[in-house]
């Protein structure tokens, strides 16, 4: 069934590509569907995934992934409220996308070869670089992994983190002791009790663990990155114009940060654009919307609604949030990070 839907979609996409001129101003089938429905169906979580998709007592969603959903909804439909968050578990997200229950997966989904090639999915460029970090007790005065020589690492048993730590420490010839726990609860208890000097894991998980500690200030997350996992936004394979919109949405958020355009000063800058590329970005001169099948002020609306990439990061998982996750690889290229905007000509 899924396969049939998929091939039909694929065929539709191919037909669309063939029948339209190269400078198409049309949205793909997904965008048409979203526009017709008047709302974007985006992923939430079954419960709260701290920092990325959290739901409060009133059922209101917040978090980094949710902000990305809002940005996409604003880009396509002009309003961050034209959005429905559908709660899905980790395992449900791919079938839910294929069956059309959701339009897009924005749910810290690592870009792996098997998912990209075997599940009928198409990835956008990474919107978040997921680091494997080390969190350690502040009173140890440790600043690099080398300082943890001989220390005890608490690690979730049976995860890829076990191997990542072994490789990283082995390559640097730092001796350590791995204490592996099956359950996150026991892992946390051991860390809070001081049984281990450090906890290695996915950066956001560490940030949430620190936030939930009896005293969060007792723990610091080291800058060192043991491994990276690029997280992409996922759409159904074959709808290239939808992926284009997602990639340019991401690019606009980064370009805004690079140019210092924020939620607060976007009107000011639009009234008096410093360069021609910013003129194009904010829709002062035409082109940015037409080529994607969107309105020309989509980027302006989006920045007005959710801010630039840095603002979204700091608000949800970074320094302005409770998690204080260092930006690390998620900084702009000019600040030593891995993120960069594409060229808007």
């Amino acid at each position: 069934m899924i396969h049939k839907t998929l091939s039909a979609l694929g065929a539709a996409a191919i037909a669309l590509t063939l029948s339209t001129p190269a400078t198409a101003a049309e949205g793909g089938p997904t965008i048409d569907m979203i526009k017709e429905r008047g709302s974007l169906l985006c992923t939430g979580h079954n419960g709260s995934y701290l920092g990325f998709a959290e739901v409060d007592d009133d059922g209101a969603w917040s978090g980094f992934d949710i902000e990305m959903c809002k940005a996409l909804a604003t880009a396509i439909l002009g309003s961050p409220d034209a959005l429905q968050i559908i709660p899905v578990s980790w395992a449900q997200r791919f079938p839910a996308l294929q069956s059309g229950d959701i339009d897009v997966i924005i749910k810290v989904t690592g870009w792996t070869m098997s998912r990209d090639t075997e599940l009928g999915l198409q990835y956008s460029r990474p919107y978040f670089i997921g680091p494997t970090n080390i969190m350690t007790r502040a009173d140890l005065g440790v600043s690099t992994p080398e300082d943890l020589e001989g220390g005890v690492f608490c690690i979730n048993a049976g995860t890829s983190i076990e191997r990542i730590v072994a490789d990283y420490m082995g390559a640097r010839d730092i001796s350590y002791e791995a204490l592996n726990f099956e359950k996150p609860e026991e892992l946390r208890a051991a860390l809070y009790a001081g049984r281990c000097d450090a906890l290695a894991g996915f950066g956001p998980f560490l940030a949430a663990t620190r936030f939930n500690a009896p005293n969060p200030d007792d723990f610091v997350i080291l800058d060192a990155v043991l491994a990276l996992e690029p997280e992409g936004i996922v759409a159904r394979e074959g709808d290239d114009s939808f992926i284009d919109v997602i990639n340019w949405m991401m690019s606009a958020l980064l370009m805004a940060e690079e140019a210092g355009i924020t939620m607060d000063n976007v009107d000011e800058i639009r009234a008096n654009p410093p360069s021609s590329s910013i003129e194009r970005l904010l829709g002062v001169s035409p082109g940015v919307g037409e080529r994607l099948g969107l309105s020309d002020d989509w980027a302006y609306n989006m920045i007005k609604a959710v801010g630039n990439y840095g603002e979204i990061y700091e608000r949800t998982v970074g320094d302005d949030s409770v998690y204080k996750l260092p930006r690390g690889a998620n900084r702009l290229w000019k600040n030593g990070g891995l993120l960069y905007p594409l060229v808007l000509d």
């Binding site: 048993a157 049976g158 995860t159 592996n180 726990f181 099956e182 026991e186």
Partner: peptide, 19 residues
């Protein structure tokens, strides 16, 4: 022992299954 991180036979087998 698996509950408290003692690497007994059961824990090693269960980690091996995952890995």
């Amino acid at each position: 022992g698996v509950a408290i991180g003692y690497p007994d036979y059961f824990m090693v087998v269960s980690t091996s299954i995952n890995q």
